[in-house]
């Protein structure tokens, strides 16, 4: 097998087109299952009552905001090391979805914080570092579009993304390293402090978020490939116009 076969935009264009619908279908199925578990089956929480159900979208979007940044930074590493075109396009395709999940995580956290903590927002280490992540995504998107030559934009933004990786462990460990209003992690490598149905619902929703993000990134990368390779022979020969 030729490992570089799919690293050419023209072959990956077809592959992405074939994969994306499957990811969206899986995302829809897991979302229905996860929402069913989270909203209809899971019991209420002893401390917080029903409002805790925000967890079924807050935690998956927050996890995904960090995971997508990590994946994006990996593609950026490939861009800088091997100077591959497709990796840079993938990073550009992931960024908007990553920013969206970050914004949703902040938003849902805020609407969860008001009835439980008593405030929409505090400047504690967890909330602040997640907000920094949102601005890193914005900075990446702006910087990648700031140059006439897209290849220069790729490299400048890649550098920013890689430097920004420092923020990921800060977000994750902020609740252990510093005093925060945000509680500790309910699920960690050591185990969990959650009731089993609640946990299952949250994990299913996380898979759903992952499938959705993969589908969205693949659809977006196809547009990016078309935009960037507009003058290439294979694009001209595309059937559907």
């Amino acid at each position: 097998m030729n490992w570089f076969y799919f690293s050419s935009p023209s072959t990956f264009y077809g592959l992405a087109g074939r994969l994306a619908p499957w990811f969206f279908a899986l995302a829809a199925v897991t979302a229905v299952w996860g929402l069913y578990l989270g909203l209809l089956v899971a019991p209420t929480d002893a401390q917080q009552g029903e409002v805790y159900r925000v967890i079924f979208i807050h935690v998956p979007t927050a996890w995904m905001s960090m995971f997508l940044y990590f994946v994006m930074a990996c593609y950026c590493g490939l861009t800088l090391v091997f100077n591959t075109r497709l990796s840079a396009m993938m990073a550009r395709a992931i960024a908007p979805t990553g920013a969206l999940f970050t914004a949703v995580a902040l938003w849902t956290g805020s609407f969860w914080g008001k009835p439980t903590w008593g405030t929409y927002w505090v400047w504690d280490a967890r909330l602040t570092s997640e907000l920094v992540l949102l601005f890193l995504y914005f900075g990446f998107i702006a910087l990648s579009n700031a140059f006439e030559d897209p290849r220069r934009g790729d490299r400048a933004a890649a550098l920013l993304a890689i430097i920004g990786v420092v923020n990921l462990p800060i977000i994750y460990f902020s609740v252990q390293w510093w005093n925060t209003l945000h509680q500790g992690s309910s699920v960690s490598f050591k185990g969990t402090s959650m009731h089993v149905t609640m946990l299952t619902g949250m994990l299913v929703m996380s898979f759903s978020a992952w499938f959705y993000a993969a589908g969205a990134a693949l659809v977006r990368v196809r547009s990016i490939i078309l935009e960037r390779e507009r003058r290439a022979q294979w694009v001209r020969e595309l059937k559907e116009g």
Binding site: T44, G49, E50, V51, R53, V54, I57, H58, W107, T108, F111, W112, K114, P115
Partner: peptide, 10 residues
């Protein structure tokens, strides 16, 4: 449970 606003806004 009385928290409709916060849950559905999310």
């Amino acid at each position: 449970g009385g928290h409709a606003f916060f849950v559905w806004m999310s």
